[in-house]
Design a protein around this nucleic acid. Structure first.
Lengths: 169, 169
DNA sequence: CCCAAATAGTTTGATTCCCGACTAATGGGC
DNA sequence: GCCCATTAGTCGGGAATCAAACTATTTGGG
């Protein structure tokens, strides 16, 4: 929203615009869960903001990246890799095919399955998004330091594998 | 191609649960963004699974927790605290009021705003959810260790405040 | 060869979220 | 007291996601 005050600046209503009201987070403020969620959210938004100009959600990039790194992959394998339901993938791939970034071909040995490959246009877009993604990760490095970054990934991996297998019981 | 004359594996249900097909993640496999997202997702699901029996998403818990810790808080302040749009909060609070967990009252000094407080029933549910949340965090401690946990939160906070800029509104 | 179970992918309905438009109330400047 | 910009919250539309039902194909037992 553009500042209309530039036009009709009668007075200076400079009330502190957003006084966060000092909320007490208590125990919640020390949880891993809350910070994981907030960090993931700002990282997601920062990525999308940075990839501006290209169709840029992180998952969209991951789809293109993984097809590029694993040409001929099927939709089911791709869905498992990014941990999405195959039904979530359908409209995304519909769109990527419509844009001529991805080709879906029936697999000869199993005509129920599709194999996925990038077109040259798809590779070009992926390369652009990859540049954005690299810059994004570099900014995270700048924020946390390279050594903390490695430590962070190691810790996150432990959480992922530890809680994921917790499906037992 | 393959004739059915191949030897028949009788009782073995070759039911390999979707053998993940060994996907190559390449550069993506070393990014903070991917692991943040995956960790947040499994943590979210583990929390919901653990809160079984109660209506349990992490955000729902956070809403109850913050109202309890800050009675009389307004919807806008609550939305800012959990970084959700106020319009996302409306249906959640509608539901919590319908269940008689939360009371919405017009603020006398500003009759546009609502103040939020927990009912005794709301406090009871919140206490149950808090026990689940404490157990959840303890499991994370077990996975990463208490010292790494503090380090993890510090690092996540740096990411949150560092990337948050540019999120004007 | 045939049929039933399993599998790959699509479609549909429900849920959750955001954004932008809207309503109601507030308060500063005249 | 009256404007009218600003603020609190709600409403409606659109996007992303999952689960369940569905279609097409494969596979194995008889």
């Amino acid at each position: 929203m553009a500042r209309r005050s530039a036009q009709r600046l009668k007075t200076v209503p400079q009330h502190e615009p957003t006084q966060p009201k000092e909320i007490d987070f208590g125990w919640l403020g020390g949880t891993v869960g809350l910070h994981l969620r907030l960090a993931q959210e700002v990282a997601f938004q920062a990525f999308a903001r940075r990839a501006n100009g290209v169709d840029g959600s992180p998952w969209r990039f991951a789809v293109l990246f993984l097809i590029d790194a694993n040409p001929g992959l099927t939709q089911g394998d791709l869905a498992a890799a990014i941990r999405r339901n195959t039904s979530s993938l359908t409209p995304v791939l519909d769109d990527l095919c419509r844009l001529d970034y991805v080709v879906r071909e029936r697999l000869a040995s199993d005509r129920r399955a599709y194999t996925l490959t990038l077109t040259p246009a798809g590779k070009a877009v992926m390369a652009k998004l990859r540049a954005s993604a690299v810059a994004h990760e570099r900014e995270i490095d700048r924020l946390v330091g390279r050594t903390n970054r490695a430590e962070l990934i190691r810790t996150l991996k432990r959480i992922i594998t530890g809680l994921e297998e917790g499906r037992d019981r």
